[in-house]
Design a protein around this nucleic acid. Structure first.
Length: 424
RNA sequence: GGAGAGGUGGCAGAGUGGUUGAAUGCACUGGUCUUGAAAACCAGCAUACGUGCAAGCGUAUCGAGGGUUCGAAUCCCUCCCUCUCCGCCA
């Protein structure tokens, strides 16, 4: 959510940012609505002031045994007017808030301009696409040979876009998650958390999934929502609080299942486990001082890249363009891992600086030293990494001609020293 | 799920209809005193919004939302949460 005062002061800039994301200008509506709100509020407050004064006088007069009829009638009149204005004020404020909640974050000035993912900027490549001297298989074929990846049985249980992993593959997925958490907690100072994967709508408003992206989410009958990413519970860890400066940065990491209904992506990536309704992900979240968010962003990138580096997976780093960057983000890097089965780089991590956009929504503030006024914190999040996709990457990059998979060195200790997952 | 208790400022804890945004204590900040420290004493110390160049003034907020009343932290209703006991359960 953007600061309405900033929008009123910079309507042109606001509209420019919107157009870069392909959203039409909206500043005039917001500015008008805010002016209306302030007018009503001023009016209301004057009446309330008079009412409070008169009520106090009544109290005093009664104490002295004086007549209070006239005063009481005056307040009675005021009361009616106040009720009407209160109603109006509530409606106008709510409308303004709902408007504000529906607009995306401003992107950083140096964000590459573009319409969609094709216009993202490649910053660098690390490693080179894995070479094979035999016909490569994709993870679905390998999984079938291993008899440890079952889409049919999963769809019987749960419908399309689910998978059942078993045996060594299941263990490999677990190994990946543990390995990632260990790196982040030991080497990058993130605190491991096991958060709820069901959350109230407030949390989703806080991080920006609601109200705009309802269709992407699963909701329970009890008005709880399945998290689409651990970003939601982790970023909301301090929602509504005023932190002291010493508490920053707060860094959290969690391995959770993530649930996405992906209604808009029907027909996309239908093969394999690249796009599932449920997948595991290790998430990194940082809640930090506004002046530190840039360097914190790089730090999260470092942590995420470290995983790919240790697994020796070829990848590239992308800077998302104005047309592809997420709703809450002002700056985003994507990490794309090389998938030999597709002969393509595919997203395996997205690392975003959200500035104070989410903090404003969830009211996470801190008190700067030597200052009376509170300030909104900055929030950042990144995948470190998507475990399911990482499993795919390992399977495809570490495959042998017979369909067996070599276990990456970094994971051996997590696999009881197993070197190769053999076709069974 | 059943029975009971309770949700007040950073914390503890008063306050059951009338200058109560809220006593008191602790914590914190500044000052006096002291060679320094401690102690003692004095002062300050919530958030958001509105208004104003500013000092300031005003409004709202005592879990949330409604209601009663001229006036609500205090009374009524609904919901949420926490604690204790019982039941159930991984």
């Amino acid at each position: 959510m953007l600061d309405i005062r900033w929008i009123c002061d910079n309507p042109k800039t606001f509209d420019k940012f919107l157009s870069q994301r392909g959203v039409s200008a909206a500043s005039s509506v917001l500015v008008d609505q805010d002016a209306k709100r302030r007018m009503i509020q001023s009016k209301l407050q004057k009446l309330q002031e008079r009412r409070n004064l008169a009520s106090k006088e009544i109290g005093k007069a009664k104490g002295q045994g004086l007549d209070t009829k006239i005063l009481i009638r005056e307040v009675g009149d005021l009361k009616e007017k106040i009720q009407v204005l209160e109603e109006e004020e509530k409606n106008v404020s709510e409308a303004l808030l709902n408007l504000l909640l529906s607009f995306p974050n401003n992107v950083d000035e140096d964000t590459p301009k573009g319409r969609n993912e094709d216009d993202n900027l490649e910053l660098r490549k690390v490693g080179t696409p894995t070479q094979f001297d035999f016909p490569v298989r994709d993870h679905v074929e390998i999984g079938e040979l291993l008899c440890e990846m079952d889409f049919k049985k999963a769809s019987g249980l749960s419908g399309s876009r689910f998978v059942i992993l078993s045996g060594a593959l299941a263990k490999l997925e677990r190994a990946l998650g543990s390995f990632m958490l260990d790196v982040h907690t030991r080497e990058f100072d993130f605190m491991e958390v096991i958060p709820p994967v069901l959350v109230k709508s407030d949390a989703l408003y806080g991080t920006g999934q609601l109200p705009k992206f309802k269709e992407d989410l699963f909701k329970t009958e009890e008005d709880l929502w399945l998290i689409p990413t651990a970003e939601v519970p982790l970023t909301n860890m301090h929602a509504g609080q005023i932190l002291s400066e010493e508490e920053l940065p707060a860094r959290f990491t969690a391995l959770t299942p993530c649930f996405r209904s992906e209604a808009g992506a029907a027909g996309k990536d239908t093969r394999g486990m690249l796009r599932q309704h449920q997948f595991n992900k290790v998430e990194l979240v940082s809640i930090c001082h506004p002046e530190k968010s840039q360097e914190e962003h790089e730090r999260i990138m470092e942590a995420a890249e470290e995983i790919l580096n240790r697994l020796n997976l070829p990848y590239r780093v992308m800077r998302l363009c104005t047309g592809d960057i997420g709703f809450s983000a002002k700056k985003t890097y994507d990490l794309e891992v090389w998938l030999p089965g597709q002969k393509k780089y595919r997203e395996i991590s997205s690392v975003s600086n959200c500035g104070d956009f989410q903090a404003r929504r969830m009211k996470t503030r801190f008190r700067p030293k030597e200052k009376k006024q509170t300030e909104f914190v900055h929030t950042l999040n990144g995948s470190g990494l998507a475990v399911g996709r990482c499993l795919i990457a390992v399977m495809e990059n570490y495959q042998n001609e017979d369909g067996s998979i070599r276990v990456p060195d970094a994971l051996k200790s997590y696999m009881d020293g197993l070197d190769v997952i053999n076709v069974g």
